[in-house]
Every structure is written in C-alpha cells, then in structure tokens.
Nucleic acid binder design. Structure first.
Length: 224
DNA sequence: GGGCGCTTTTAACTTATAGT
DNA sequence: ACTATAAGTTAAAAGCGCCC
C-alpha cells in the first residue's frame, strides 16, 4: 500500500522513537493483511509487544486505533473493488467483510448511499458539499440525505471538487450554503488531531470520515 | 514508559427474510 | 441472482486504574 508520507508535523524527533517504530511496524503488518481479520493479539505478537501496550501506543502515534486503521483500509478496498466493476457481493468478500450485512452496515457511514448506487457512480443521488479551509489544506465534506459520502483534503477548492465529481460521475451536485454538522465535526477532528506519524491525506480523510460518522450517528441531519 | 487485569462498549458473525 | 435489511449472539477492542 502507500508508503509513509515524509511530511512531518514539526516534531521530527518523535517519529524515530521506539513508540513510532513500533507503530510503524504494526501499520506495515496491517497493510500486508488488509483483507484479513487481524486480532489485536496477533498484531501485537507480530511486533513483539503486549496487546494493550500496542493498542495505546498505536493510537497515540498514528491517531487511530489498530482496529480503526484496519477498518478504514477495508472500506477503501471495498470502494476500490466496486469502482473496478466488481459486483457488490464480490467487492464485499474481496474487501474482507465476512458477510454482506457487514458491508451494508458500514455503507451509510462510508458511502452515504447504498453500495449498488455507489457502484453506479452515485446515479440518481443529489450530493451536497462544502469546502472549508483548515490547517492541513482545503477540506471538502460531501453528504447525501443518507449521510456523509465523501471527505477530501487538497490544495485548492477546484481540486477537491473535481476529485469528488470523478468519484461520483453520475450524481447531481449542489454546493451548500449552510455549514453542515458534518463539516463542523470534521474540522473539530482535523484541528484536534496531531498524530506523531502523519498519514497520507486520503487515509486521513477516510479515517476522519469514519470517526465523524460514528460521532454523529445519534444526531439526525439538520440538528446540531 | 511499559505492562497487566478488569469492565464496558462495539464490531463482526450467522442466519433469515424480502424486494428487484 | 443480486441487493438490502434486521435480530440475536459472541468475540474483540477500548478505557481505566494500578503497579513496576
């Protein structure tokens, strides 16, 4: 999978610490076994640490728990398989979901539409989006009436909007005038997140999306 | 800083069912 | 055949306090 980005957050020394090295080895293991179910115990054994120690260290260094990281990788694999023409069923198992219900349960937070609609490029969906400046670049948050469908981080508004349109070529788009609760929650995560290891932006965006969705699960759209 | 044990919470699994 | 959803159960992860 993608190599670790070389961008750092200004505390160069910390990335070379024992904790950072431990987290990096664990992350490499998860990358290699992205479509399998890796238990915390197995992951810990692979890097020579106790499960509880690894869990805490990984979260502090990477900004995500090992489980969150693995989940995020699975979502990416699921979407990628469907974009490559696989059926929903094929993509479900290719991504490592144990059953179809798992893929559908997660679809609301990861896709903002059903997997079949995602596979058709968002056909028939209206996607609203807002672009907001942040400390790490322009953040685009897009959502449908079913939930958050995409989060993108880029250098310019044009770039993130073009990227969104390419992922959902058959959807209708509408720039939102109001600040969505999704965008507000996303910014809160971005400004509050300072992991020792900077992840590639696409991974951070997906991880933010999953976490924000979980945080907002109990909040119907339109309420704050 | 690193590790352990306990409790609580959450995610994943199986199975079933229904719509297209 | 494929897609979509739900219920009940179980395993795993997370959180926390504590110790060395």
């Amino acid at each position: 999978m993608s190599a670790l980005t070389t961008r750092r957050n200004g505390r160069e020394g910390s990335t070379g610490s024992a904790a950072a090295q431990l987290a990096r080895r664990a992350r490499a293991f998860l990358d290699q076994h992205a479509t399998e179910r890796v238990t915390l115990e197995a992951l810990a054994a692979s890097v020579g640490a106790s499960p509880s120690h690894l869990q805490r260290t990984f979260k502090r260094v990477v900004g995500l728990s090992p489980a969150e990281y693995a989940r995020m990788k699975r979502h990416q694999q699921f979407k990628s398989a469907m974009r490559n023409g696989k059926t929903v069923s094929e993509a479900t198992y290719e991504a490592g979901f144990g059953s179809s219900s798992r893929a559908y349960e997660n679809a609301a937070g990861a896709l903002g539409m059903t997997p079949a609609t995602y596979r058709k490029g968002g056909d028939g969906m209206e996607i609203r989006y807002a672009v907001t400046p942040s400390p790490i670049g322009r953040i685009l948050v897009a959502w449908t009436d079913r939930g958050l469908c995409s989060v993108r981080i880029g250098d310019s508004q044009a770039a993130v909007v073009a990227s969104l349109r390419s992922e959902f070529p058959n959807a209708r788009f509408k720039a939102a005038s109001e600040v969505s609760p999704f965008a507000a929650a996303m910014l809160e995560h971005v400004t509050g997140d300072r992991p020792e290891i900077e992840l590639p932006l696409d991974i951070r965006a997906t991880a933010f999306q999953l976490r924000v969705w979980r945080a907002l699960k109990q909040i119907p759209y339109g309420e704050t």
